[in-house]
Design a protein around this nucleic acid. Structure first.
Lengths: 239, 239
DNA sequence: CACTAACCGCAGGATATCCTTCACTTATTC
DNA sequence: GAATAAGTGAAGGATATCCTGCGGTTAGTG
């Protein structure tokens, strides 16, 4: 790879030193976010990155910018993996999809998708990546359908949903165990993708990926700040 | 239901008033935790519950106790649903499992399972619930296997993993959309449970549920506070 | 209908995190 | 090897959240 960070074009060419630390910070942030969530203190991230806190603030204007970059990097991983999948379909589209999903699960520790409590990352860059990803997945799915290798009611949104669900950390579980469990889950899911010879019930109607993207909160992380008219369901147990 | 909260037996019989507010607080906490994660301020939870902050602290010694109770309640929902499933298997064990999973997904907004950044809830009560749940699921799975209705390599841990993955909120998505996506995902997963007539690859070996429970972090939420010897992988894009 | 548990409103100290600033040192680049 | 971008260490103000305490009020309970 090139010394600096060649990406969105606006790069003012970081010095080797700076690029290295930037990468370290992002790696530490990924780990911290997966373990402690968005609440992970920036001090701790800097410490884990072996970098002074001032350096972190030099690279990222504030904590939100750091989170945003981590999420964007996550989307980028999905996209690149999908591009590879589209290119390598000698044995059919479904196997390519399977490799895509299992590959992502395998490197899930590297992945941080949108976090609960984190900022909404739906700027132009994020949307562009997601839309391109959607197009690639649609392409793969269409091919798989034509090959009769997949049930016809599965959509690109279903695949991204699976990534989102299976690649987030399982709280309080070590990485290795979470890894194994997630992979087993995904493998069962993948088997469910095959066209059912038996009367497997069709999926209920769902939104397209574009619709999902459109429904992501435009404002802050507080969608329905309902002052609580909730009649309160019951909850058992005593303290 | 009875006026107070009849559960673990240690209940000093809350007044009707108190029990009501307690339930409201827990409901508000569930909603807040699903939206903002563990970082949800207690003030906000109290406000959303239509209750003064002092009342919250009267019911729960501190924030952790509140989180713990919410999680325990979540486990309890799983357990009760499983008990119902075991009782109602006229059409076989697999359909009962399917109803169990789909039912949980349907009421996922009511469910809060362990949260990233939250305390580790693995006290005696939680473990007892989880073990009983595991026993019930093992029973259902064994029956389903005997009936030849399910692939033989699926374990109770796979089922709880699926609940954990599918019932957590999809960040930044409204409840309804998350609901639909989660249900579609689970339906595909369920179809993957059927015994494959075709050469569906067997699942890689995985831990039993007891092993998973044993591996839950005993200490705090910081398992590997590695000061970061990580050689830092690369990350693209520029700020 | 009296008793009192429970709730409310509010004030305030403790702590943690965020983010900035600055003088000084180190490492990279040309 | 000189110019300078980048990093270090440390101090400190601004918030936000946690949690406690107390007098006054409300509302179940028997």
């Amino acid at each position: 790879m090139t010394p600096a960070a060649p990406s969105d074009g606006t790069g003012p060419q970081l010095r080797a030193d700076a690029a290295r630390n930037r990468a370290r910070i992002l790696a530490a942030a990924r780990a911290a976010f997966r373990e402690r969530g968005t609440a992970a203190p920036l001090d701790e991230i800097a410490r884990r990155a072996g970098v002074n806190i001032a350096t972190l603030y030099r690279r990222f204007p504030d904590g939100e910018a750091l989170i945003r970059q981590v999420v964007i990097d996550g989307y980028t991983v999905l996209l690149h993996a999908a591009q590879t999948a589209v290119r390598q379909t000698p044995d059919g589209a479904l196997p390519a999809i399977e490799r895509w999903l299992l590959g992502l699960v395998a490197e899930r520790e590297m992945l941080v998708l949108p976090l609960i409590g984190g900022p909404v990352v739906n700027d132009a860059e994020a949307l562009a990546i997601q839309r391109e990803l959607g197009a690639l997945l649609d392409e793969l799915l269409a091919t798989a359908r034509d090959q009769g290798a997949i049930r016809p009611d599965v959509t690109a949104a279903d695949l991204t949903t699976t990534v989102a669900l299976a690649c987030r950390p399982l709280p309080h579980l070590d990485a290795a165990t979470g890894q194994v469990l997630a992979e087993r889950h995904v493998r069962v899911f993948l088997d469910g993708l095959r066209p059912g010879p038996d009367p497997s019930s069709p999926l209920p109607p769902g939104p397209t990926l574009d619709e999902v993207l459109a429904r992501v909160y435009a404002a802050g992380p507080t969608p329905t700040p309902t002052p609580t008219p909730t009649p309160t369901p019951d909850s058992k147990t005593q303290r």
